[in-house]
Amino acid sequence: MNLVYAFAIAAQMGCGVYLLLSRHGMRILIGIVLLSTATNLLIFVAGGLRFTAPPVIEPGLQVLAAETANALPQALILTAIVIGFALVSFAAALMLKTYRSVGSVLTSDHVDAEALGSPFDREAPRNA
């Protein structure tokens, strides 16, 4: 089972990285979504998946029964999911704004702050 989990996480992360390397703003966004989903799954697996009962204290008991799922990573992931959502929303707004002001979603066209190529190549003729 551990190897299947590893395979699924690795596949999601690899695809996420591939999309992140794209120059298309939308593909980068999708890459971020994939990566954060895969990361959450990774934390989940790291907490150990021995038991499938939810970590809820049964009525009548004072403490959690022994054979329940690990509650700690769940709490962490719950935070992470929401943060990831905020991140993607902000990135989407940023991309939309960039598209509106620059007129392109390709990062290769976003050259106002920093043009493509080595800075020396452009300085050279100016100095000569």
């Binding site: 966004l29 989940f44 992931i77 959502f85 993607v88 989407a92």
Partner: peptide, 24 residues
């Protein structure tokens, strides 16, 4: 795997994300 809270949140967020990205 015994994490219904996570599943709920994930479904909600994923739905929102798909809607949001489609709108973009």
């Amino acid at each position: 795997n015994g994490a219904p809270d996570l599943a709920l949140t994930q479904i909600a967020v994923e739905t929102l994300l798909v809607i949001l990205l489609t709108a973009v």
